[in-house]
Design a protein around this nucleic acid. Structure first.
Length: 485
DNA sequence: TTTTGAGTTGTTCGA
DNA sequence: GTCGAACAACTCAAA
């Protein structure tokens, strides 16, 4: 007697280890692993181009991993509810399991699907597979969501370690007849004409095995120096786990426990481990914010910015996007993003500050660009981070904090190696001039083969002036508020 | 209820 | 060259 199968609906949890929904599906006996490409998904944030590339690689890897344990991935395209109905009909499944998503569009979709399925007698299990803590499961003493990070982190950290990660199954029973599957290639998630993904392929191995390798690399070579070196884009002292966390090739509980056990074995690394766990805490906090303020990606979290005089300067925006602002650390970051689908965190702040404060362009414009170009594009993290830099967000930077791209470059890329890597036309400039080529003596420029305005742009704005302009605009905002009151 | 201390990531200026 | 203060005020979280 065959038991009816359970559909495991993969979404942003494309892995086999530490997968509570998979464990739940397995308790039913037979499992149909399903991924649905739903390009009509509600919410207004269709997956960006770089993330689609990442998705392709992650799905290929997941299918491969499933085949090693006797199963395979079923790919279907269409509205999620309709596709689920189809697959339920085809397989006779009596249950569906998934890991929760927290984007407002996904919540609405899943709620409707869950109600419809249960009304028809299909069991639904939705579980937490992607967060250390459910956003509704942590609150201030007054029972409200946290609007400041530090107390949020203290509360989360104070809970001790999250549950230990679950092992990956060694075998996955399949139904007698597996439903048909689309061919991944037919989904055209990869760019063609032109194929701009060469830099992404060189930089990344999507999928669960790639995530494990990145984690090991970080534990062996990044963790010990993390507290000091995470700000150094030339050294790459970060974990580079963000794209894997984004589609769930690895989960935060796995990362947490791996870091903790490494720190336990090397007592000197306790401080570094805490610094890193705190960054996981920021990811959690972004989800906390998005859940409780679902319009975080669209609207200023902090009131009073509705009438801020953002500039519409298309040519400046384009210079920023293309890495042609004339500020080497900004341009290096924007080109790293374009080429590899990722940017070092410190440089993200510098580049974001430049767009918002130096160019006075709306943070949503930057949010959109990052959404399209980042392989780790994450609605919660992206929105929370842009709002933080803009000063419109929770716990935001004070308005007078304006990054100076020259000082930041000197401080965090002291030899200029990061700039040299991504702005090769400046590669021969010596370190003491590489972050402000426009002040380099003529003979230094000549020897380095740089003619400003020809090989590399002059600065599109004067930072000192732009800073004053920003300070005045943000200050006027406060006054306008007072006048309105 | 009121009070109090605190709040990711910076820069500039003047002593 | 180094160092502390100013840059604003506000709101949050907890006692």
């Amino acid at each position: 007697m065959h038991r009816p199968p359970c559909i495991l609906w993969f979404r942003q949890d494309l892995r086999l280890a530490d997968h509570p929904a998979l464990a739940a599906a397995l308790r039913h006996g037979v499992v149909v692993p399903l991924f649905i490409l739903d390009e009509t998904a509600p919410g207004g944030w269709p997956q960006g181009a770089a993330k689609r590339w990442w998705l392709h690689g992650s799905l290929a890897a997941l299918d491969h991993a499933l085949r090693t344990i006797g199963s395979r991935l079923v790919l279907r395209r269409g509205p999620a509810a309709a596709v689920l109905d189809e697959v339920i009909r085809e397989t006779g499944a009596t249950a569906v399991a998934w890991s929760r998503c927290y984007e407002p569009g996904a919540i609405a979709r899943d709620k409707a699907i869950k109600a419809a399925l249960r009304a028809r007698g299909v069991a639904v299990e939705s579980v937490n597979g992607s967060l250390l803590v459910e956003p509704w499961d942590i609150a201030t003493g007054a029972g409200k969501p946290y609007a400041v990070f530090t107390p949020f982190w203290k509360a989360l950290r104070g809970r001790g370690d999250p549950p230990a990660p679950l092992p990956a199954p060694t075998t996955l029973p399949v139904p007698a007849a597996m439903p048909k599957s689309d061919a991944l290639e037919d989904w055209r998630l990869l760019p063609t004409a032109p194929d701009w993904a060469g830099g992404l392929r060189a930089a990344w191995v999507p999928g669960e095995a790639g995530a494990r390798a990145a984690l090991m690399e970080f534990l062996d070579h990044g963790l010990a120096g993390y507290a000091q070196q995470r700000d150094r884009p030339d050294i790459d002292g970060t974990s580079r786990l963000s794209p894997y966390l984004g589609l769930g090739a690895i989960g935060p509980r796995q990362v947490w426990h791996a870091v903790q056990s490494r720190a336990a074995a090397h007592p000197g690394q306790g401080g570094a481990a805490e610094a890193y766990l705190r960054e996981l805490g920021w990811r959690e906090y972004a989800y906390h914010l998005l859940y409780h303020w679902p319009d975080l990606p669209e609207r200023n979290w902090r009131d009073g910015f509705e009438h801020f005089p953002w500039r519409a300067d298309y040519s400046a925006l384009q210079a920023w996007q293309r890495g042609m602002t004339g500020y080497p650390i900004v341009d290096a970051g924007m080109r790293q993003l374009w080429q590899t689908g990722w940017m070092h965190n410190r440089v993200r702040m510098i580049a974001a500050s430049f767009l918002i404060k130096d160019l006075l362009i709306h943070w949503r414009t930057g949010e959109d660009w990052f959404w399209d170009t980042l392989v780790d594009a994450d609605l919660a993290v992206n929105a929370a981070s842009w709002q933080w830099v803009a000063g419109t967000g929770a716990d935001a930077a004070p308005y007078f904090r304006v990054f100076n791209p020259v000082l930041q470059g000197r401080k965090f890329d002291p030899h200029g190696d990061y700039v040299r890597r991504f702005v090769p036309e400046l590669a021969r400039l010596p370190a003491d001039h590489i972050h402000e080529p426009w002040t380099a003596p003529a003979d230094v420029l000549r020897q380095a083969g740089v003619a400003l305005g020809r090989d590399y742009p002059r600065p599109i704005v004067d930072h000192a002036q732009a800073r004053l302009r920003a300070l005045a605009a943000f200050k006027a905002l406060g006054k306008a508020d007072e006048a309105a009151d």
